[in-house]
Design a protein around this nucleic acid. Structure first.
Lengths: 224, 224
DNA sequence: CCTACCGATCGGTAGG
DNA sequence: CCTACCGATCGGTAGG
């Protein structure tokens, strides 16, 4: 029998208005409660589950369990399952935009070919690298959004596409890219986006192999 | 009061083993019952709904209503909702294979470039033409299949891919295609498959425009 | 293929 | 963030 159990009976505490505060896991004051941490955990869990099972097939109970919560708790952080999906997609788009913008200066003074290579490389990293559940969810689950959400995301997607257009235009102008710029952008992004369906990090091809293959396919460029 | 009602009381028919046969809408004998027609109607309705709403978000009641049936009736034709999804995908793959094989002879004696153009054109028609819900469902809902179903479909998909490989190999051999054949096939099909996400028949670009743009992008070919 | 129904699950909420 | 719960919906079935 463990020594620390069954000693003197625990004295009943005086009744208080907020009895739970003093028991269970220690509570933090509102300022240090780190809501963002729990919210971020929910977002990450939701992104992973939405990606692997799809939005409609994922229950809010699945998400709660993956984040270590009880079934009703996600609704403390998000108004609805829909709002969770939208937040995942927004987070994904903001991260993708930030990464492309951070990578742009490195090739800004180089050839359009090198600029396209930079865009393609970062795009593959966003799709296939670590923390890469958010954008695939956005690509493949947008049908589950309502109109207002779809409109708001469309604006972010247009921003993202606007990073590609000048580079493709320059390539078209020099004859390196023969297809019309608008359709070329759609076909190129399609070729890249589809990789989330088949890319397997445990297989032989690496992300760099994909970048080389894509540039070779679109521009006839052979890797250096 | 309608004349044909409230005349002589309907005589009770003799009790029979199959009383329903003689009442209600006329029944056909088993041979002319045209089960295939009702089954095909369910498949078409399911394909359209699975495509527009996704598998998990579509109820078997939705499908029944779209085919003009009551809620329990789809289960007379299909064992489960899963079986319906699988049948849609199988139908789609068989049709796609049949159409590609029918189109092959037209370009068999022409250049590899012309052969690729033929494959791309038929692929776009299967994806975007009339009755084009089946293949998009297969492309975007395979996560909802069980393992046995997935394995069976993989075989059909391999058959389909095997139509592309010799053409891409010939193009790679002649230097017209610089990317490795395996990755090129995945990127090319991705570019084409993604079109179901954005192609709008009511917009300016036609399927023929897409074919031209794709060939220009992959081979640097300009349309004749 | 219809009628009537079951058992399970699900998104979401009240109150603490 | 947890507990306890509600109302609605859903896949599927028995019997005809």
């Amino acid at each position: 029998m463990p020594a620390q159990v069954a000693t003197a009976p625990t004295p009943q505490p005086e009744p208080r208005l907020t009895p739970a505060r003093a028991r269970g896991r220690p509570r933090k004051t509102p300022l240090e409660r780190d809501d963002g941490n729990r919210r971020a955990a929910l977002l990450r869990a939701a992104a992973a589950l939405f990606r692997s099972q799809g939005f409609a097939a994922t229950t809010t109970r699945d998400i709660a369990a993956a984040a270590g919560m009880q079934s009703g708790s996600p609704f403390y952080h998000f108004k609805s399952k829909d709002a969770l999906l939208f937040a995942v997609m927004q987070e994904g788009m903001h991260a993708a935009l930030a990464r492309q913008r951070a990578a742009l200066p490195a090739t800004a003074k180089q050839s359009p070919q090198a600029q396209l290579r930079g865009l393609v490389q970062t795009h593959f990293q966003v799709l296939l690298g670590p923390d890469s559940d958010f954008i695939p969810v956005m690509l493949y689950e947008s049908r589950s959004l309502n109109n207002a959400q779809r409109t708001e995301l469309s604006a972010l997607q247009s921003e993202y596409e606007s990073l590609w257009t000048p580079v493709l235009s320059a390539l078209h102008g020099s004859g390196a890219l023969r297809a019309p710029v608008g359709l070329a952008r759609l076909l190129v992004l399609g070729a890249l986006n589809w990789s989330v369906q088949w890319f397997d990090a445990s297989k032989s091809a690496t992300v760099d192999d994909l970048v080389d293959a894509a540039l070779a396919l679109f521009l006839g460029e052979v890797a250096a």
